[in-house]
Nucleic acid binder design. Structure first.
Lengths: 111, 111
DNA sequence: TCCGATACTGAAAAAAAGGTAAGTACCTGA
DNA sequence: TCAGGTACTTACCTTTTTTTCAGTATCGGA
């Protein structure tokens, strides 16, 4: 999930949001901070394991900020950093493209 | 590489350009048609197998057009369809984001 | 005292993706 | 006759990614 050098900007960007879930998590965070459990519900189908794994990676990349509230029961809030927000903004056209062509894409047989 | 339904447009788009190579191939085709061998050289590090696999998938999705010239030695040209071009356009901001932050991304340790 | 909620962690297995290397067919030119 | 170029195909193997599922700690409330 990490190359040493990139052939172009898109290459680098794909490396960062690569995988099945990161883009969706980023998206789910676009309107403010969310707790772990909220995110799990916001990203349908994701397992707890994957959610944490991806969040940790995104935190490592500086896309996401993690804030722990020492309470019981525990509370952890995730939010986008400026870097994360800039990436999210760059993803908007792609999201719109997908929205526009979703019908077409869904109609394509899997095999 | 194909879900039944998508939770949002980005979800669908990521499904379409998912994987290590599709975005790069799309990119390599943005300025006109290319032959198989040209593409292989244009996308550094890709194996012939992966290139064909991805091209076939993209053809299947209607992103790429394949034209065979019955000559010897054989000649096959790949180019973007309008659909492919629209996707490519949606990827431009992402490419620019990657370009802009490439230094930052490269500086992040892999582990 | 036991249950539930929260946010995780770890091991193991399954599935998907990618890599390597060899082989195919065809004609051309040496 | 034989190597060379093109565009693949096939089989096999390794790596990476994702899933599954059980388990941890804490405290409040029934």
């Amino acid at each position: 999930m990490k190359k040493q050098s990139y052939s172009c900007g898109l290459d680098a960007a794909v490396d960062v949001i690569g995988g099945k879930w990161k883009a969706l998590i980023l998206w789910a965070l676009h309107d403010g901070s969310r707790r772990f459990g909220e995110l799990r519900r916001a990203v349908p189908g994701i397992s707890e394991k994957m959610l944490i794994l991806q969040l940790r990676e995104m935190e490592h990349y500086g896309l996401v900020r993690r804030e722990v509230y020492h309470q019981v029961p525990p509370k952890v809030e995730y939010s986008l950093t400026d870097f994360g927000q800039s990436l999210n903004a760059a993803l908007i056209p792609l999201g719109e493209w997908g929205e526009k062509h979703m019908k077409t894409i869904e109609a394509i047989p899997a095999a």
